[in-house]
């Protein structure tokens, strides 16, 4: 069982949350100018790293807001959570 710290509600049980996939994927501007390859890359391709992963979570049974988390995909340890739109704490780039 993971304990996850929602940036708004504090530490809660994993069962209150839903994982919502990779974070920091920006929808391309001017999508009409994208090639099929670029669109596929945005829509389907994922980093899926073994190790540190930046991902979105939804506090589904709480405040129902999305936030970001930094989690290791091998140990499952969450090292930080932060609000949508923010950069990961203590790091210059995502």
């Amino acid at each position: 069982m993971l304990l996850i710290e929602c940036p708004w509600c504090g530490v809660r049980d994993e069962t209150e949350f839903a994982c919502a996939g990779e974070a920091h994927i920006a929808r391309p501007l001017e999508t009409e100018k994208l090639s099929d390859e670029e669109w596929a890359d945005y829509l389907f391709m994922r980093k899926n790293p073994k190790g540190r992963h930046y991902e979105q979570w939804l506090h589904a049974a709480g405040c129902r807001r999305y936030f970001n988390a930094v989690r290791d995909t091998v140990t499952y340890r969450i090292s930080a959570t932060y609000k949508i739109g923010e950069q990961p704490p203590g790091e210059g780039e995502k």
Partner: peptide
């Protein structure tokens, strides 16, 4: 499990 994982174990819930 809803999250990505390589740990060959999952959540109890």
């Amino acid at each position: 499990d809803s999250y990505n994982g390589y740990g060959q174990r999952g959540s109890f819930p």
